[in-house]
Design a protein around this nucleic acid. Structure first.
Lengths: 330, 330
DNA sequence: TTGAAAGCGCTAACAG
DNA sequence: CTGTTAGCGCTTTCAA
């Protein structure tokens, strides 16, 4: 067992209150006493128990982030952006992936008890749970629509959705398949809405939604297989890059030329997008996490008391050639 | 302030011990009492303080993972694999990126005080710090050479390094540039050693190391620029996929054909590798994290007391065509 | 400048 | 089956 404040006090011949003062760097301690305490601290290699300290101070000096699933670069980047800023602000970082588990809400509640505030990402828990949590601790919503006056951060979906679909339409595409499930992601719902709005002004354009129920490469490959039977569209517009990559890879497997026969777009601009020559919308993933961390800190420290809702800009990235090879897509 | 165990006890007309029993699901509580307590719990929406509980139980029910830097898919995948298993084992997960900060060791020590054990990845802190930490709490080393009897998990580097270099040599390459800094990563050091061993049996082959000092795409592009001046090799063998992608992209920018004029290989098999047609070595990134989580849990729960050192297999992935487009590599 | 003492919220003997 | 009580390790008045 490691040394406690009492061991140090005994060895230095002072009271625990004095040891506490020295550890907290209160200046009302005489230099001589301070030195003796520090010597004892070093000798016993004493580290204050964060548990004891937190209990007495009634704060954790930690905060958490909850995200739905861990697969794919998008969540990873966001979480890492969050960690980076939170660590800078001197707070430990707890992470939790609900992963569609039924126990998700319970796990989040548990986590809420371990930190001074938390960031809730996307569709991890129902609104009712968010509301309950927000009553207990400061909460920031990330990539999720506003709930009451809870702070939120998100990337712009609508403007870029419009730019993207306008680009696709301007390229001459009329039959367009949208791949992605709006029910599983508020971001996707907004993007689809942006598309529909633009399409409404183009009667010759037809958008058709496909909801594969997942967001990985497989969602793309599956959809292409179906489309090959029912008839290829002019373009596959995907809710994220991974699906788009799946689409590309399946099209290649069938010797269908991109963008000659059909166009493909993604969303996020993950690293692979560049190498696949994928047209997409760049999201500031790191910044999303970092901004959430900062907003949360502001609430926790009380440096701000009116709610904020940040919308970070996105950018259409048009790439003209596909870099996919048709072989060796294992 | 939220309700405490005393509030519940008062409202239910019982002692705090009884409330504790109900919460812990001890069965020596009469049904009637249990119901009254549960009613009070619900009424006050009482959640036991994890702090109080941890202090009394002398355990955190949390463990941590430390990694060097967050950039790139490799660390992200490992961390996520770790989270997944740790959560399954009912432990909260703390993450910390030392990020080359001078305060790194102090931050890790701080974190050690918040959890029941931790995983230390790669070159995050010096050996002396690891030894001190290991004396305080259970530790598992991840992708880092053994230190004393501390548990460790790593991917096989040597065997795959041999397969890879043999593949390159068999393809006819003689002048080979290795890109990556062995001092910054134990994994890289092992891979380079594996290469050298094989090369020793091939006097006609010449390996030349380049240490760019970082591990991102830029490391690759920079090295190619230098090599173009000093003379192109037959192959660039890179310590990870990101560097290799940087190499590919810079070669393309100079209209140098891959693999016609020069061959490029990576390591890790990140998602982009497939779409860039990159030959590489697949590492079980998720599994590395997951295995570390399991080993750590075994030590913490005391279900094992002799040290273990796991080496997970890797796999050479040969891809024959590059999918890189020469345009639009923004 | 220092110490005594009362918590922070909970668990776990030990008694009854 | 239930209550009393003594901690877990620290911070922080309040006195001295």
């Amino acid at each position: 067992m490691s040394a406690t404040i009492r061991d140090v006090a005994r060895q230095a011949g002072v009271s625990i209150a004095t040891v506490s003062r020295v550890m907290r760097e209160h200046d009302n301690v005489s230099p001589g006493t301070r030195d003796r305490v520090n010597a004892a601290v070093a000798d016993l290699s004493f580290t204050p128990s964060s548990l004891g300290r937190s209990l007495a101070e009634r704060r954790h000096a930690a905060n958490g982030i909850v995200f739905p699933d861990l697969s794919g670069p998008y969540y990873a980047e966001v979480v890492l952006g969050y960690e980076s800023v939170a660590a800078e602000l001197g707070r430990s970082v707890l992470i939790l992936s609900t992963h569609g588990r039924a126990a998700g809400p319970a796990m989040v509640e548990e986590m809420a008890g371990r930190c001074d505030g938390l960031v809730i990402m996307g569709q991890t828990v129902p609104d009712t749970v968010v509301e309950r949590l927000a009553r207990r601790v400061p909460v920031v919503l990330l990539a999720r629509p506003q709930i009451g006056t809870v702070d939120s951060v998100k990337a712009d979906n609508v403007d870029s959705a419009k730019s993207l679909i306008e680009h696709v339409i301007a390229s001459g595409d009329r039959q367009i398949i949208l791949i992605g499930d709006p029910d599983l992601s508020p971001d996707v719902a907004e993007r689809w809405a942006g598309f529909e709005k633009v399409a409404a002004a183009h009667p010759e354009v037809h958008l058709e939604q496909r909801h594969p129920g997942l967001f990985g490469e497989r969602a793309g490959t599956n959809t292409v297989r179906e489309a090959i039977r029912s008839g290829l569209p002019d373009a596959f517009v995907c809710a994220n890059d991974e699906m788009a990559l799946g689409v590309l890879s399946e099209l290649r497997a069938h010797d269908i030329d991109v963008p000659g026969q059909v166009r493909v777009t993604g969303w996020d601009d993950i690293m692979a997008a560049k190498y696949a020559g994928l047209t997409t919308v760049r999201q500031p993933m790191r910044d999303l996490g970092g901004t959430a961390a900062r907003l949360l800190d502001e609430i926790i420290t009380g440096s701000r008391n009116h709610p904020r809702h940040e919308v970070l800009p996105t950018e259409l990235v048009v790439r003209t050639s596909s870099g996919l090879s048709r072989k060796d897509m294992r």
